[in-house]
């Protein structure tokens, strides 16, 4: 109440409080105040209600995004960081630099892009699979179900830095649990491998992300399962469908609308995830796990070239918009066909 009333002083009176405008009317408000005023208030109210959200979104997301696009067209290096309006125009040169795949900058970006795609696809697929497996196996009543459900959700509830920093401890070469189990106990490797640098770092980032994200898939799918009407199972049981048959013909098809949103959200979150690689590897990620958000962060803040960094971000956004649009078109069409 207070928020919306103070955020627009002029219109605050119209926010429809009981006892707002002059005659504090009960049932006969329409009679006392002019009809036009009531209609205006009706029309204005939804806008007043969304105003705080709109202002915040504009301030933190939309205006910065527009400025970010503008920044991708100027030579914004550390010389101009205090007085960035004086930075010279760069035209399309930041973009040329970013997509020139024969030059080191462009090649590194392309590499990072493919690493990120591969990482995202594997992580999302596994998170979804783990989530479905967990949610389906948790159906029905058995002892310890509540405890297990709570336990599965802990990685999602843990602050990312606490969970991921623990993984970086597990993955230490000398003192970590992973090498202790793989080398000392199972004797799978002769020499202790590195997990946070070199080619293994790609596996590490997938495992850690999976650990963090599958509980979210589990949570959403569990909620989705609760919405499947019981009688569908009863009807299919009368038709003689076994457990596997029900899973294939009832459970999975009924989860399709949930999956549509879940997979998209997981894809976007995983693709844009900065926190996990940043906490796991620090400011510079190893080549093999050079995820795009870290790559752009490094291009901007470590080498102080914000113009190029912005151009890369804009390209990334365009890519995500494209993927989302194509995805929504394809999945919606399939849904209306079904």
């Amino acid at each position: 109440m207070v928020v919306s009333a103070t955020s627009r002083p002029g219109g605050g009176r119209g926010s429809g409080d009981p006892g707002g405008p002059p005659p504090p009317a009960g049932g006969g408000r329409g009679r006392v105040t002019p009809r036009l005023w009531v209609r205006l208030r009706r029309l204005g109210l939804p806008y007043l209600l969304i105003l705080p959200a709109l202002v915040l979104e504009l301030l933190v997301h939309l205006i910065p995004m527009v400025i970010g696009i503008g920044m991708s067209f100027i030579k914004l290096t550390q010389l101009y960081i205090r007085n960035w309006s004086a930075a010279p125009s760069a035209g399309w040169s930041n973009y040329h630099l970013a997509v020139d795949f024969n030059a080191p900058v462009g090649r590194a970006l392309l590499h990072s892009f493919f690493v990120t795609i591969l990482f995202t696809v594997i992580t999302v697929a596994l998170s979804w699979f783990f989530g479905v497996a967990g949610a389906v196996l948790m159906q029905g009543e058995f002892r310890g179900r509540g405890v297990l459900r709570a336990l599965f959700l802990v990685p999602y509830a843990l602050p990312v830095y606490a969970g991921v920093i623990t993984w970086s401890f597990l993955l230490q070469r000398e003192s970590g649990l992973v090498n202790h189990v793989l080398v000392d106990q199972l004797h799978l490797f002769g020499d202790k491998p590195f997990w946070l640098i070199g080619s293994n770092s790609f596996i590490s980032i997938i495992v850690v992300s999976l650990w963090r994200w599958w509980p979210f898939a589990f949570l959403v799918l569990m909620a989705g399962l609760q919405n499947i009407p019981r009688d569908l199972y009863e009807a299919s049981a009368i038709d003689g469908a076994g457990w596997m048959r029900q899973l294939r013909s009832v459970t999975l098809p009924m989860l399709r609308p949930v999956n549509q949103v879940l997979v998209l959200v997981l894809f976007l979150w995983t693709f844009n995830d900065f926190n996990t690689p940043y906490v796991l590897f620090g400011k510079t990620a190893p080549q093999e796990a050079d995820l795009i958000s870290i790559h752009i962060y490094q291009s901007s803040f470590v080498t102080w070239n914000f113009g190029t960094g912005s151009a890369m971000s804009v390209l990334l956004l365009l890519f995500l918009l494209l993927v989302t649009a194509v995805y929504l078109v394809i999945t919606s069409r399939r849904r209306s066909d079904a």
Partner: peptide, 29 residues
């Protein structure tokens, strides 16, 4: 109300922005 759909889409689409895109502009703002 007019703009209802536009508002919903705008708000939801901010979910897909890479944080890195508006980090520096926001910092400058």
């Amino acid at each position: 109300f007019a703009g209802r759909r536009a508002f919903s889409i705008t708000v939801l689409s901010t979910q897909m922005f890479p944080g890195i895109l508006f980090l520096l502009p926001l910092f400058l703002i």
